[in-house]
Design a protein around this nucleic acid. Structure first.
Length: 492
DNA sequence: CGTGGACACT
């Protein structure tokens, strides 16, 4: 109890006063150390324990997981003399927390080979992994498993399903689950509102927000993040501002940094850059890098070099190790053909040892997630994929697609620019999808960064030429391409 | 008397 409340020292004195190292007390103590990030003491105590039970090991595994030490968690997990359901869900959760969703799913798959029942904890963790890699088939399998085994859909598990379907591009199924959930919580409504927001369905998100209150659920701070996001994605500036003001006035919630970030994004993206800057200057807390990042993103979209440069410098100071900032600023320079500045940035990155975040796309094919990097050549089907991609590009060019090279980061010839765009990861993933799926079926791609102008245009053409629905989820929202048009209405 | 799950701003 002491350890849990953060009085780690008092807890340790009590533990020592007991005389011998009791298993249950030690486990509690280890958990306490872990919760406060004192991994060293946790490890020492664990090593000194005369008898360890399965919970001692589990506490270590989840402790490492929560302290983002996934390698250590895996090491302990592998060394366990015996594993139970808690051990498995602790390690899967560790992978999820570190953003290694694909690995989490692999472990989940491995778990199914063991004779351990899948309980609601591990199922919701696995659904979370599915949501993040866009593994719709596996998510559906889990849903079927839940039904088959008559596992009760509690608030959390139900919400995981709602979220998974929404993030895998199936708002219809997401809605089905949401409607059928007997026990809803605020966060269930938040997940559904957030799902609508991602898909650009701002009006529906607002309607659901009103509906939750008719059902006497009280919106919380996260509800407003989802709602403001919905308005931002759809460019509903007035409505967004209205709700922002209501947060405090009507709902008596103190707006958080996140809310300010949403408003800066809302205004900036819609072109109200000065207003967005005013918000930053007048907010009651010191803006963090996310808020500045929203403004920098707006500068990129609207080609505002002067402000972009100023904001970029602030960000490079705040987060010298974050490659996305450099890329964004570099994009602004590249668009304005200021190649000397681009070059200077590249040098700076090299000096500081900043590694660029590689663009990655994932596509789920019959339950296996395939992942591609820019210019990837590691896939067994590489040759066929590239042959398909070349053919696709030829075809869409005939239909009128022109390579948009304005965002290429280097001062190279137009021809080279086109080449470097051609191998963006989502293009490879889409080519892979066209190659391996039946004509007419929907292609779903999930990527880690935002889509670039060129890929966006190319995908619109592909959807038309190949008569395919293509759903691309980028870092923040969905693009549903159909018959040459995108659901984002080219506003993203 | 100990361990595991959800929604969230670039």
């Amino acid at each position: 109890m002491y350890a849990y409340l953060g009085r780690v020292n008092e807890a340790r004195i009590m533990l020592d006063s007991i005389g011998k190292l009791d298993v249950i007390c030690c486990n509690a103590m280890i958990d306490g150390y872990m919760k406060f990030g004192d991994v060293g003491s946790a490890r020492k105590l664990f090593d000194n324990m005369p008898d360890k039970n399965i919970s001692s090991w589990n506490t270590m595994v989840s402790g490492f997981s929560n302290n983002e030490m996934i390698e250590e968690a895996k090491k302990y997990f592998d060394q366990m003399p015996k594993r139970d359901d808690v051990s498995w869900s602790a390690i899967i959760d560790g992978y999820n927390k570190g953003g290694h969703f694909k690995e989490a799913l692999e472990v989940f798959h491995q778990m199914q080979g063991e004779e351990i029942k899948l309980n609601k904890f591990v199922l919701s963790s696995a659904l979370n992994s599915c949501a993040n890699v866009g593994a719709l088939d596996q998510g559906k399998w889990i849903h079927a498993y839940i039904k088959r085994n008559r596992i009760v859909l509690d608030e959390v598990l139900g919400t995981s399903l709602v979220d998974m379907y929404a993030k895998c591009g199936r708002l219809d199924l997401s809605w089905d689950v949401f409607e059928r959930m007997k026990h809803k919580e605020v966060f269930s409504w938040n997940a559904m509102i957030g799902g609508l927001a991602m898909h650009g369905r701002a009006e529906d998100a607002i309607e659901l927000f009103l509906d939750m209150q008719r059902h006497e659920y009280k919106p919380n701070d996260i509800t407003f993040v989802a709602l403001l996001n919905a308005c931002a994605h759809a460019g509903l500036v007035d409505k967004g501002l209205k709700y922002f003001l209501l947060i405090k006035e009507t709902y008596n919630i103190e707006p958080t940094m996140e809310h300010y970030g949403c408003v800066v994004n809302l205004l900036g993206k819609a072109g109200y850059i000065n207003e967005a800057e005013d918000v930053i200057n007048s907010m009651p807390m010191k803006p963090n890098s996310v808020v500045w990042g929203a403004l920098l993103g707006a500068c990129r979209i609207h080609g505002n070099i002067e402000l972009g440069e100023k904001v970029g410098e602030i960000l490079l100071e705040l987060e010298p190790e974050n490659s996305i900032r450099y890329t964004l600023l570099s994009n602004i320079y590249a668009k304005a053909a200021k190649w000397d500045r681009v070059e200077k940035l590249r040098k700076l990155m090299k000096e500081r040892g900043v590694k660029t975040m590689t663009d990655r796309s994932m596509i789920d094919l019959k339950g296996t997630v395939h992942e591609f990097k820019v210019g990837d050549s590691s896939h067994p089907q590489t040759e066929e994929i590239y042959r398909t991609l070349e053919m696709i590009i030829q075809k869409i060019k005939l239909k009128g697609h022109e390579a948009d090279t304005s965002e290429v980061l280097f001062d190279i010839s137009e021809e080279e620019k086109e080449t470097s765009l051609k191998y963006h990861s989502e293009k490879i993933a889409i080519a892979f999808g066209i190659l391996n799926t039946e004509p007419g079926t929907t292609i779903r791609v999930v990527k880690n960064l935002r889509v670039c102008e060129d890929c966006h245009s190319a995908t619109k053409f592909i959807s038309q030429v190949y008569k395919r629905d293509i759903i691309v989820r980028d870092r923040v929202r969905y693009h549903h391409f159909r018959n040459g048009k995108c659901s984002c209405k080219d506003f993203w």
